[in-house]
Amino acid sequence: MPQETKVKATFPSIEWFNALRDIINDDDAYKHIGTCDAVVGVKMPDAKKYFLLTFEAFEVLEAKEVSETDAEDSDFWLEMSDARWQEMIKNIGENGKADLRHTLNTIDLEEEEGFARSNDGYRRDAFYRFNQSFQHFFDSSAKIDTKFA
């Protein structure tokens, strides 16, 4: 039986997010969760890396590297230290998906300022409304052979 070949990408990079986008857009399980409409920023302040993910209907429309300001011009952005980001991605890679201590929600509660942050109390709720889609999105990074920068 042929072994599954994983795509290789370095985290954090636009190549890594594009690889994840491609995996999701070819994933019926993601579509089965239902439509998801949100613009989500990703912030790694230590590495000064910022991304913007556009979720639309049944796909991830776009992933792009942006400025910090642009990452905050979103429904909400996900922000924590580089070490915590690495811990989460590694945990997903090791378990095939986030274990109970590394779900987006659990991390959100553990971060004093929250993992999901926003300038708008209504738009931030997109984190809850589409939570399972976002969890599935990051869980799918287990299909990437991730190297850390």
Partner: peptide, 11 residues
Amino acid sequence: RLCMQDVSRQL
């Protein structure tokens, strides 16, 4: 997680 989704629509 799924209940969070449902109740956030009401919010």
